[in-house]
Design a binder for these strands. Structure first.
Lengths: 228, 228
DNA sequence: CGAAACACGTGACTC
DNA sequence: TGAGTCACGTGTTTC
């Protein structure tokens, strides 16, 4: 019921042309001397004008239809923009153009934000997971994982040795906890381990730290491409 | 130079009103008897009509401006839609409305696709990374990482023991390779280790596998909350 | 010159 | 009624 707007519009346009013809005449200044014999061509100047107007009008109509078609697809693409039932007979809650554009802008912004966030997460995970090489200097750091209850992340870099893993295992076992997950990178005779330790008390952190410190620096025979 | 289109448009509208007044008269059929004394109000019917037309025209202008403002922000939001320099003096390659809408539709589709893909990836990573508990049965599997040259991923599940790490280290060292990365999950007396081994020949894979098998099944005292 | 794009005012329609 | 929205034809500008 909404798209039956067109119709009876040519009446006004006809009047417009009429008024213009009555009022105007032929404003071209220097070609006017050629219209002395207006019977050579069946088109008079007025006819040329009206046919040009028709062309113009039709072209404009095509342009409008093109734009409105884009609006339609936009309405179809985005949610919250159209709620028409099976048949758009009744219950077609068409949003007006400005709202369509506004909603589009909103959704585009949200989508962009979402994409950047997801991409960052993806990259973050990658760069966090893939490889972090051991630092040259010995390091030991413990921190609580705030997004996980009772989870502590212990990061340590030191010289690699054959007994290191056992030493670390004993250190962790000494505080009655469990290593939920571990990441170990070994390169160039040095190693970097990240341990996620579950179920550690507040005072346990200090104990674990000192135990790990001892384990790290316990002298053991070096392991560089050791063959056994 | 583009937005100076308006101007001299009121001329046509004036003519239109004029033509309409000449042609029309006052088409209201039953209120016409009240206009016998048209001096009570300084507004005549024609004046009412023209002021209403003005209101209407201005409202329509506001609507147009609103829509065009949305177009502007849309142009600003999306890439590839505007390429104007510092000043939009010259070199303002404004895309027309239909193209703006078309480009918008395209970008929205791409963004949606991107979001769904990224979300899928994110979930995939999560479920792959976070926790894979050790399986109840002993398992040992080696596979080449096709996206990385010379990288082999060894997955093993077995009983946890204190000497297991050392045994695994020796097994890896026996084939003259390095563990680039390791993930270790230990729960309920069982452990699951994933080792990424770099620099392994084709025949080395079989050797590593048998070595790891021996290391896995070497009997050692159990480790369940062991205290040093 | 046309063709294309836009702003404009106006009639019709809806709520 | 009256405000809001739309389609339409037209004038103008740009290429």
């Amino acid at each position: 019921m909404v798209f039956l707007r067109q119709g009876m519009q040519h009446v006004r346009s006809y009047y417009n042309s009429e008024a213009q013809m009555i009022r105007g005449g032929f404003p071209q200044p220097f070609i006017s001397r050629t219209n002395k014999t207006s019977f050579l061509k069946p088109r008079s100047k007025a006819e040329i004008k009206v046919v040009a107007a028709k062309k113009h009008s039709e072209a404009e109509k095509r342009r409008r239809m093109r734009i409105n078609g884009q609006y339609e697809t936009l309405r179809a693409i985005l949610p919250n923009l159209i709620k028409h039932g099976e048949i758009d007979f009744v219950m077609n809650q068409q949003k007006d153009k400005a709202s369509v554009l506004a909603e589009t802008i909103k959704q585009v912004k949200e989508l962009k934000k979402k994409v950047s966030k997801l991409e960052q997460d993806s990259y973050g995970n990658s760069s966090k997971d893939v490889v972090k090489f051991p630092s040259g200097a010995d390091r030991l750091n413990l921190e609580k994982c705030n997004n996980e209850e009772g989870l502590v992340k212990a990061t340590l870099s030191c010289e690699d040795s054959l007994g290191l893993m056992s030493a670390i295992s004993r250190a962790v076992g000494s505080v009655k906890t469990k290593v939920v997950k571990a990441e170990i990178v070994s390169v160039g005779g040095r190693t970097r381990s990240v341990l996620w330790v579950q179920g550690l008390g507040t005072d346990g952190m200090g104990m674990l730290k000192s135990s790990l410190k001892i384990a790290m620096h316990k002298p053991a025979f070096k392991m560089r491409h050791s063959t056994q």
